[in-house]
């Protein structure tokens, strides 16, 4: 397992390098630059701005400069938030997103997986119908509508939870639930589907025939085996939830990272785009490594790329 982790870290470096290179090329191909604004600036001023951020140099040179800085762990400066470095911005925002994303992930797993299990075990009965109805609701209503609904019901009508801002643990409840809503629904569906798959396996049928269908051992085995697809999606899901959701952070006015993924692209804030992308990539690789380790624990037969 230690070798697996070490190998993953070694593999991660070229992936990160490729992510940085590809993103670097992508943003330069997309039209519009950081200094295009509502009011056009005189050419003299645009020239000054480009010189200040080395954007007047030929692209290959900019690339080399960027990679050198990256090698030193310096993600560069923001063009939009003038006096701040990308490192500063991400250091401020990351802890907030970690808390929010972690809460949402925990909520999604704690609600989604049992919901799916309940539905699968009670297949065709009312529990199943109800659970699937709920999960359908969860994935068919956009996050901004759920957010608006929550703010209206709990913040304005009942006045029991704050409608926004990030001051106390109470302020985390609505955003975390909103963020967890669709992944929970997704996990429920997935758990149900793969549990049903397992229930039809021969060994389960044998157990059922012997009248053991309700026993804890059988249930444990069913759950254990049906968690594989669930754990697969958990990797990307973790990365997505922790890097935050633009919609949730935007609606509840939370100072997290999610908004930078959208606004940096909108502003063509080159270094900030690259910085957020790299953070996301690192998280994703980490999460996927954990997932692969989890596979081996759940099912030792699955040898993953030794």
């Amino acid at each position: 397992m230690l070798t697996l982790i070490l190998k993953r870290i070694l593999m991660a470096l070229p992936v990160l390098f490729l992510v940085a290179t590809l993103s670097f090329c992508l943003i330069r191909v997309v039209p519009g630059g950081p200094f295009d604004a509502d009011k056009n600036l005189p050419d003299e001023i645009v020239a000054n701005l480009k010189a200040k951020y080395n954007l007047d140099k030929p692209l290959p040179e900019q690339y080399v400069l960027y990679m050198q800085r990256l090698g030193r762990g310096d993600l560069g400066v923001s063009y939009k938030y003038v006096s701040r470095t990308v490192n500063d911005i991400l250091l401020d925002a990351f802890p907030v997103s970690l808390v929010l994303g972690g809460l949402a992930l925990a909520l999604a797993v704690l609600v989604g997986v049992p919901l799916g299990a309940v539905a699968a075990l009670g297949r065709g009965r009312w529990q199943d119908t109800l659970a699937m109805f709920l999960s359908t609701f969860g994935i068919s209503v956009p996050g901004f509508v759920i957010g608006a609904l929550f703010i209206y019901v709990f913040g304005i009508q009942l006045r029991i939870l704050p409608v926004g801002l990030w001051e106390s643990p109470w302020h985390m409840i609505l955003p975390a639930i909103t963020l967890a809503f669709s992944p929970a629904a997704y996990l429920a569906r997935l758990t149900r589907a793969s549990a049903l798959e397992i229930v039809q396996k021969d060994w389960v049928r044998t157990a059922q025939a012997k009248g053991l269908s309700g026993s804890a051992t059988v249930l444990k085995h069913i759950m254990r085996n049906s968690l594989v697809p669930v754990i697969t999606v958990l990797g990307p899901l973790t990365a997505i939830l922790i890097t935050g959701s633009f919609v949730v952070e935007y609606i509840y006015a939370i100072p997290g990272m999610g908004r930078f993924f959208i606004t940096a692209v909108m502003n063509r804030d080159y270094d900030l785009i690259l910085g957020t992308t790299l953070i996301f990539a690192v998280l994703l690789i980490m999460a996927n490594t954990f997932v692969d380790i989890a596979y081996q624990i759940l099912d030792p037969r699955m040898r993953i790329s030794d």
Partner: peptide, 18 residues
């Protein structure tokens, strides 16, 4: 000075005396 980007959230904050 708060930075609430979404208008309807900010409005809800106003309605709730925040």
């Amino acid at each position: 000075m708060f930075m609430v980007p979404e208008q309807s959230t900010a409005f809800a904050l106003y309605e709730n005396d925040e």
